[in-house]
């Protein structure tokens, strides 16, 4: 059967068979299809890692940058063109390790993007070293006596940063994950979705079986707008691991900050359509040139 999903990519995927990334890809595809957006209106931004390959496997715009540096270009893209829907696909190493500093500040800015972290608690691309979320005691080739550093708790961290949307999912729950991503995209401001994902090649601890025995979905009795309760929930880990929307809040987004400052969007196809006479590619213009009379007025200041 032909796939009619406009975001569907036909081509080879280079993940290991059985990898949770396939499930996340399906979830992202499902979300994008449900958004009523065209592929040209979506940008997937990533750094480096197995998760960072995802933009190549979706039919949309992509920016596959440097290891740990997915969030800064995502900021640049979204700030310059606020009409774009920007999703970041990143991993625990990319986002919580190499690029940890950017996570703090991207949340502070409250740029309106959705960050999907493929959290497999191990480094996949470099073949099995510990990641910032690996459990204490996990033995790898570079931690032969076991991991000693405490794992990073992204959920607790994000709540502490008053992130507008904080969720956790499990990759096997494809529809559930897709729904969380959709809610993240629709949230005004920064959305962090940490997705627990088995690594069939290198993580022999946090397996499908391990997760399936532990994860449970939060029900209606849980109120994600209560920050203290959310923080309590974020500490729940071990025999029972909650998945779902863990925290929600509201504060001024970066877009709104720009609006308040009077910085206008510079690409606005609806208002700035320049038809350039070709049936093949109707191109929208971008205001790239400054107002010369205004520039001239600066001279008088010197």
């Amino acid at each position: 059967m032909e796939n009619t999903n406009p975001f569907h990519y036909e081509g080879e995927l280079s993940w290991c068979p059985g990898c949770g990334d396939f499930q996340i890809l399906k979830s992202v595809e499902k979300t994008l299809t449900s958004l009523n957006k065209k592929p040209s209106e979506v940008v997937l931004v990533s750094g480096i890692g197995q998760a960072a390959k995802l933009p190549h496997y979706i039919h949309a715009n992509g920016f596959n940058g440097l290891h740990g540096r997915a969030l800064p270009p995502a900021f640049g893209i979204k700030a310059f063109n606020r009409d774009l829907t920007v999703l970041v696909t990143t991993g625990d190493g990319d986002c919580y390790g190499e690029g940890g500093n950017h996570l703090i500040h991207a949340i502070r800015r409250n740029i309106d993007i959705t960050v999907i972290v493929h959290n497999n608690q191990v480094y996949g691309l470099t073949k099995g070293q510990a990641s910032p979320t690996s459990e204490v005691g996990m033995v790898t080739k570079t931690q032969p006596y076991g991991v000693v550093s405490l794992p990073f708790n992204p959920i607790a961290f994000a709540i502490a940063m008053d992130t507008p949307f904080v969720a956790r999912s499990y990759s096997k729950e494809i529809d559930f994950t897709a729904e969380l991503i959709r809610q993240g995209v629709e949230t005004k401001g920064f959305a962090l979705i940490d997705i627990l994902q088995p690594c069939v090649s290198f993580n022999k601890i946090n397996t499908y079986q391990w997760y399936s025995q532990r994860v449970y979905k939060l029900d209606n009795t849980y109120d994600p707008t209560n920050r203290v309760k959310a923080f309590e929930k974020s500490l729940e880990w071990g025999d029972k691991i909650p998945i779902g929307v863990i925290y929600r809040s509201q504060r001024q987004t970066y877009d709104e900050t720009l609006d308040r400052l009077g910085i206008k969007p510079q690409i606005n196809p609806a208002h700035n359509l320049i038809q350039r006479g070709s049936s093949q590619g109707v191109m929208c213009g971008v205001n790239t040139l400054p107002d010369l009379s205004k520039v001239k007025s600066l001279l008088s200041e010197f």
């Binding site: 940008v43 480096i48 715009n61 992509g62 596959n64 196809p269």
Partner: peptide
């Protein structure tokens, strides 16, 4: 070209 200049999509890659 840039995203949303037309109906096309593209990838910039490291």
């Amino acid at each position: 070209a840039y995203p949303m200049q037309g109906d096309f999509t593209f990838i910039a890659d490291s």
